[in-house]
Computed example of a mutant assay.
Amino acid sequence: MKVDNVDVKALDKVVDKMIQTVDQSKDEIFNIGERCRQDYEAISLELEEVKKMFEQVIAEGEELEVKSRLARNRLSEVNKNFHQYTEEQVREAYEKAHEFHTKLQINHQVEKQLRDRRDELERRLRSLEHTIERAEHLVSQVSVVLNYLQTDFKQVGEMIKDAKEKKDFGLRIIEAQEEERKRLSREIHDGPAQMLANVLMRSDLIDRVYRERSPEEALKEIRSLKQMVRSALYEVRRIIYDLRPMALDDLGLIPTLKKYLQTIEEYHKGTKIHFTNYGLETRLPPNYEVALFRLIQESVQNALKHAQAHEIQVKVDIQNHQVTAVVKDDGKGFDPSVKQPGSFGIMGMKERVDLLEGELSIRSNIGVGTVVYIQVPLKK
């Protein structure tokens, strides 16, 4: 490829290769993050069970302490007045004292084991939580890059005349994304092993509950395990829907936004999301529907992840000549004049709006929330 004479076909091949590589990397990151999320759910359930068993052991230990003390006092009294008691009474006093002493020692050992197990599970949960957050952040960044490559970057060959500059830009994206993926893979390389260990541990717990307690309680544990699997399946479906909702192609922008925002609200229990459509509920050209959906999706995700908003308002107004979208939240806000580290999402939003010849403005102040205003003209 000559620098002064850009070969658009060769450039398209480079872009297609970039899209394929980034898409494969995104799938791998998603799978790794999903395994960690399943591990997190399983460990959370196990931790709750361990805490309940720990509280029970503590209560039993306190009761055994009282009984052991009484047994020792009884034994001391028998020893002092040995001639006043029969041989059977003396033997009974010794056996009782020994029995409660033994039970108390076993109780202390079980308590220590449960305490150690609880602390270990809590440490693992903190580590998994950090890893999941990193994975979600990375997937979000990679999604922006992938969407940019699939929709906007296809036109770069007609706008950029320097082929070397274009190629270096694409390679830098892949290199940075690959480096992040390697780092994430190193951090959670033992995810599958931990998942299998959790399953084994859970099965051992069910077996012990069946033997030591009752079949009914064992069935409760099995139902709990099934619920954990259902939760994992729900999470997989939610993420798949988030990656590419099929309803966008079948029903259009407004119905898809309604469903998407409802799903997000169900997943984020502490946040209320209000959606209002003021204009026409009509179909738009596919590239407009995809772009507007991604812009609103990115704005809502920013409000949830970064602004920690409790209430989000999404308003859309489709008219014959333009589309207006407003996303407002009551989160912690930020200073738009200060460049945020890792603000690749906002950069991607601006690029997408520019390609639609629209306008994007973000108004925010620390402590008073953020308003994202999007206006895109519709060409006849």
Rank of each mutant, 00 (worst) to 15 (best):
L233Q: 13
L233N: 12
L233G: 07
Y234G: 05
R237P: 00
R237H: 14
Y241A: 04
L243Q: 13
P245C: 07
P245N: 08
M246E: 14
D249T: 06
I254V: 15
K258S: 09
K259W: 01
Y260Q: 00
T263A: 13
T263W: 02
Y267F: 12
Y267R: 15
G270H: 11
G270W: 02
K272Q: 12
I273L: 11
N277W: 04
N277C: 15
P286H: 07
P286I: 06
N287S: 09
Y288P: 02
A291D: 11
A291G: 09
R294Y: 07
E298S: 14
Q301C: 01
L304C: 08
A307Y: 05
H310W: 01
I312Y: 00
Q313T: 11
V314W: 00
K315T: 10
D317V: 04
Q319W: 04
N320W: 07
N320P: 06
H321Q: 13
Q322H: 14
Q322P: 01
V323I: 15
T324L: 08
A325N: 05
V326Q: 09
V327G: 06
D329N: 15
G333E: 03
G333W: 03
G333H: 09
D335Q: 10
P336W: 05
V338S: 06
Q340L: 12
Q340Y: 03
G342M: 03
S343V: 03
F344M: 10
G345C: 07
I346R: 08
M349R: 03
K350Q: 15
